[in-house]
Design a protein around this nucleic acid. Sequence first.
RNA 1: GGCCUCUUCGUCUAGCGGCUAGGACACCAGGUUCUCAUCCUGGAAACAGGGGUUCAAUUCCCCUAGGGGCUACCA
Length: 460
Amino acid sequence: MAKEIKRQIRTRIAPSPTGMLHVGTARAALFNELFARKQGGEFVLRIEDTDRQRSEKKFEQDVLTGLKWLGLEWDEGPDIGGKYGPYRQSERGEFYRAALQQLIDDERAYQVPHGEAIVFRVSEEEIVFTDLIRGTVKVPTSSWGGDFIVARSMNDPLYHLAAVVDDQLMQISHVIRGEDHLTNTARHILLQRSLAYETPQYAHLPLLLDEGRRKLSKRAGDVSLLSYRDKGYLADAMLNYLALLGWNPGGQEEYFTHEELVRSFNLSKVQKGGAIFNQVKLTSMNKHYLQELDEDKLLDWGKKYLLLDQKKNHELLGMEEGRLKAALKTEQGRLSTYHELEVLLDWARPSWAGEYKSDLLIWRESTAADTINYLSALAEEFKLMGNSDWVEETLTPRILSWIRARNWHNGAVLWPMRVALTGRENSPGPFAVAVVVGKTETVTRLELAHKKLQDSISGE
RNA sequence: GGCCUCUUCGUCUAGCGGCUAGGACACCAGGUUCUCAUCCUGGAAACAGGGGUUCAAUUCCCCUAGGGGCUACCA
């Protein structure tokens, strides 16, 4: 038996730029990247734009932007070149022509009478190959009907031919792709044999499914990777979530950095059945990552959101950066995506006017009269405080003991204070908010609340 | 229809002949608390069904059922 020289591990992701980068494609890219990195191999990005009608430059850009955002880096690709370029199929015509000519010369393929297609001859047989995830897979050529078209013309190759030629020329050792390619693999093996190519190792990933257990597609909702970025999902969270869809390292831990994923990745632990892309779980994972952001990263994250609609968020954007940072920090525990940001940050605006109902100011076990009293007492107490005391560590104990000294109830005083400052039923604690908006605004807001409540009572 | 393929809580999964079948998300209850969130405690929740093999099957084999994919001059 001939000792085979161990080939360099080379994997690839080969998206076709006919739409926005799909989360399923991103996940396949991730698995290819993890596998290559783990083995000390190389990861290649190839753009499969043989379908000129449907391929668009903007989609190619979306693919590149999306993969980069996720944190995947390729060793060779259309943007950086490499030793087996070009990496765009539309620029590789000569290679496909040569392969087609060879197939025709060897009578493995023929041109139909008027030259509008080149057909690859297939005899009836069963193709057997080893899948790194599924083991032995058998596909009879009858399953797709035998002969198949490999090109529209010498200058117009189709997917099967182009993919096979490129994988050979680019020295791809492992083809890791979706399960929907299972029968395509049999066709590719036939082409490889006819062209005297090497057959790479194959691994077919379980599909990403929608809630109805169907292959995740555009009609199922958001499948564009970057749409998740724009909704406030962090790349680290997305990467982590995607990695665990159809794979896991075996233990109980489920939060991993990219480096940790590389270290523990193993194709044999890839699941065989499809996995539902569950946005609820993704969101909870995102929340976890959001909690761990330091204040500068959190500020960057928040600003990206505000920039999405600059007009609407004009005031927050124009605000002093320290204040925005502090405001975000107080709301950090409540953040999970961008969805709620606008509402959560509303109180932080300097011109915030308190559009809440006065009844909200009254704690459930308190009365309007008492609340009015607390509100004015608080305002007076704050006026006595120096600006240097206006930090949470000083403010909190001071007011708490001030309340205790008067035999008041924390809730009866703190609830109205918090509502006066945020106008919300649910919000960060009153001291944290008071520190962010500053002493002057705190007093103003307390006086506003006081007036609101008084007006509502006298209006009855 | 044909071919291929898959099957553990609702979801993502651990398990690789002997376990009270574990974790996470979601859900429910309680605690902490001015509220929400966080955090802590607890709870409900699964081996698709039927045959084998074996002292012993979630685990190995077969059948059935169900799901999914493919069946383009798309990729």
